[in-house]
């Protein structure tokens, strides 16, 4: 029982990270229709810069955090610039080219991380060390914080989407970018805000997870995959979709770790994919969520 509870909780907190990456996907896609594969790379770079600042240069965590967020926000803006440099209202973006460009950025980030931080996995500082005992299950404080922060971010974003002008204009762009432009919304700026926001969220995910799952230069791709799965599983409901998708994904993966040895590890890799396929056959619009548009 205690073991099950522990797996359950670990799964949820791991799933929270997937959810954050998935939410980043969702925000950018709804605002610009671009699938930003570089989403995982923000986590990679954010996590690495954070651990370097905090451990090598001994900055206080809050200062390191602030610097990382500024750095990553700039990365988000740069991504947007690169992806839609040639876009005009009357010449919409080519989605194939956009997705390929972001894929190239994933590999650029990977190469850069390899050059700077080398091939070995590294570990970032935790918010709070130690463990807590809940009903016999031993939980790491860091993963408790991971789950809490995920939920707080999701709630905050939901509020942003419903209550603020930025959120409203993002939803307008999701419905119809042309109409949005005719209402006086600067569609490019909304897109840039979405990229920035998603980059920041991605970096938070990377910083949170680095004490538990060590970071290596290839992890950007892995994060991206999990985010994509969370996004596809959950459905196109801006925040709730990837949140639920990510949590389910984390749970399912970790439940399979209960199997001993290599089988568990193998199932952990294969089952999410199988889940995705089953989903796409059974409910192509995702767990929650309306019809899959376009």
């Amino acid at each position: 029982m205690a073991e099950f509870l522990q797996v359950l909780f670990t799964g949820l907190s791991q799933g929270g990270i997937y959810a954050l990456i998935g939410i980043g996907f969702s925000l950018v896609n709804m605002s610009t229709r671009v699938l930003n594969l570089a989403q995982g790379s923000y986590a990679l770079l954010g996590g690495f810069v954070f651990l370097t600042l905090a451990t090598r240069y001994g900055l206080p965590l809050w200062a390191a955090l602030a610097l990382v967020l500024v750095f990553v926000a700039m990365l988000g803006v740069v991504t947007e610039r690169i992806v839609s440099l040639r876009v005009r209202p009357w010449r919409p973006i080519s989605h194939d080219m956009a997705i390929l460009t972001t894929l190239a950025l994933v590999v650029v980030a990977e190469g850069a991380a390899f050059l700077i931080w080398g091939p070995d996995p590294q570990r970032g500082p935790a918010l709070q060390r130690g463990v807590v005992n809940v009903l016999g299950a031993i939980l790491i404080w860091q993963s408790v914080w991971m789950l809490v922060i995920t939920l707080v971010i999701a709630a905050g974003l939901q509020w942003l989407l419903i209550r603020t002008w930025l959120g409203r204009s993002m939803r307008a762009c999701a419905q119809n970018p042309l109409t949005a432009a005719l209402l006086g919304i600067d569609v490019r700026r909304v897109g840039m805000a979405a990229f920035t926001l998603s980059a920041v969220i991605g970096a938070l995910a990377g910083m949170l997870v680095s004490p538990i799952t060590w970071l290596d230069y290839q992890i950007g791709g892995e994060f991206m995959l999990k985010g994509v799965l969370a996004y596809l599983l959950g459905g196109e409901l801006a925040i709730a979709g990837p949140l639920v998708g990510g949590l389910v994904l984390g749970l399912v993966e970790n439940l399979f770790l209960l199997f001993p040895g290599a089988t568990g590890g193998l199932l952990k890799q294969v089952v999410p994919m199988a889940l995705l396929i089953v989903m796409l056959v059974w409910r192509p619009q995702g767990l929650l969520g309306g019809p899959r548009a376009r």
Partner: peptide
Amino acid sequence: LSGSYFMLGTLAFGIMVHAVIRTW
């Protein structure tokens, strides 16, 4: 799935094969 989602789905498959090779 439409174009972009086809890419995402196949990408997930490609990365999964790599992960399986490493784990199994």
